[in-house]
Amino acid sequence: MEALWIVLLGSLTAGYFALAGFDYGTALLFRFVGRDEPERTRVLGAMTPFALGNEVWLVAAVGVLFGAFPRLEGELLSGHHGVFTAIVTGLVVFTASVQLRGNSRAWDVPLIAGALAVAVGWGWLAADLTGAPAPLWGAGVVALFAVHGGTFLAWRLPGRSGERAGALARSLVLPCAAFVPAVVLLSGSARHPELAVVGAVAVVVLLLGSRLASGRTAFACTALACALPVPVVFAAADVVHVETMAHTATLTVLTPVALVVLPLVLLFQWATWWMHRA
């Protein structure tokens, strides 16, 4: 049962990065992808129907962290107080701005700043966990999300703006692919460096794959490239331990809830994609 909950925590967190990653990427790129106001509204409109559903993967992950890994939750969050304050502030600003943007350009700055704070914040956390330099990780996650956002827009948007998004994403693939081995080489404190190497190779392959493929396949590649660092960093830094988990009695109560809720969320989030099919 412990293994089930570790997989669940990992999947929810990875799901959050795979999905919300393109929200942040879209926010970072939309001013470059759209040349005028109507175009920018359309670019953001490609992402907004999914934003709420994407962000709540993190909420669910933190809920699982609290319920099933209570001693890890307290240690992880309070141990990285400043990082999480930045991430949560960025998240709140970003989530509100996405909803408020509509046709009002006043929200562009908080929208981009929020996305940037969240991306840099996650990079900073990964740097804290692995011992690699924080600026490198911060820039790397920003670039990774931008590639993902660009690939998403290239897939979903017809015409010139879609082409521009694709070109932006392709131009960012190589810097991204260079960042990945760099953080692995510079991560001092990883307990399992071999995992980091395997993960890095996989991410680089996925990134290059996204450059060769197009449409949905490229999007799947960048989604995986955003999600993969989560299990890799957590495993390499050896963050999750069974001792930090809740007792069997608690997990027994939570398991049926998770088994009912997760398929429902997947089904209804799939329905969201189906309703907005490209």
Binding site: A60, P70, A246, L254, V261, L262
Partner: peptide, 15 residues
């Protein structure tokens, strides 16, 4: 305390 809170985030927030 974490159990009802986790159920809340899964059942309520997420769904």
């Amino acid at each position: 305390f974490g159990a009802p809170l986790a159920i809340e985030t899964l059942v309520a927030f997420f769904l």
